Computed example of a mutant assay.
Amino acid sequence: MKTARDSRGGYAQIMQPFELPEFYMPWPARLNPNLEAARVHSKAWAYHWSLD
């Protein structure tokens, strides 16, 4: 069971409502080939709107 700081500076237990099963992936994980272009675009957009 995990713990986290509560609003009073103490610790509270974090209860999970269920346990996640093991996931079977019959293919290898890959990154989207457009990832770097999307990051550049997102950072430029955030800078444009003063959200950086």
Rank of each mutant, 00 (worst) to 15 (best):
M1G: 14
M1T: 15
K2Q: 13
T3P: 02
T3H: 11
A4D: 05
A4P: 04
R5G: 11
R5N: 04
R5H: 12
R5V: 00
R5T: 11
D6T: 05
D6L: 08
D6V: 13
D6S: 08
D6P: 10
S7W: 13
S7G: 15
S7C: 14
S7L: 12
S7F: 15
R8Q: 13
R8V: 04
R8G: 07
G9L: 01
G9Q: 05
G9M: 00
G10Q: 15
G10C: 12
A12I: 14
Q13R: 14
I14Q: 11
I14M: 03
I14E: 10
I14W: 11
M15D: 12
M15Q: 05
Q16E: 14
Q16M: 11
Q16R: 07
Q16G: 04
P17T: 03
F18M: 02
F18C: 08
F18T: 00
F18N: 03
F18D: 07
F18W: 09
E19S: 09
E19K: 02
E19G: 05
L20S: 01
L20Q: 09
P21S: 01
E22A: 02
E22M: 01
F23L: 12
F23C: 02
F23H: 02
F23D: 05
Y24P: 06
Y24C: 05
M25K: 05
M25P: 02
M25Y: 06
M25C: 08
M25W: 08
P26C: 04
P26W: 10
P26R: 09
W27D: 09
W27K: 14
P28F: 04
A29W: 08
A29L: 09
A29G: 00
A29E: 12
A29C: 08
R30E: 10
R30C: 03
R30A: 08
L31A: 04
L31R: 04
P33N: 01
P33S: 02
N34G: 12
N34D: 14
N34V: 02
N34S: 15
L35T: 10
L35S: 15
E36L: 13
E36C: 12
A37G: 10
A37E: 14
A37Q: 15
A38Y: 07
R39S: 05
R39M: 11
R39F: 12
R39Y: 03
V40P: 01
V40L: 08
V40W: 07
V40F: 11
H41R: 07
H41C: 00
H41I: 07
H41K: 01
S42Y: 07
S42T: 14
K43L: 07
K43Y: 00
K43P: 01
W45V: 05
W45H: 06
A46W: 06
A46S: 08
Y47R: 10
Y47N: 03
Y47T: 14
Y47V: 06
Y47I: 09
Y47C: 05
H48F: 13
H48N: 06
W49E: 09
W49C: 00
W49T: 12
S50Q: 04
S50D: 13
L51R: 13
L51S: 06
L51P: 01
D52L: 11
D52W: 10
D52N: 11
D52P: 00
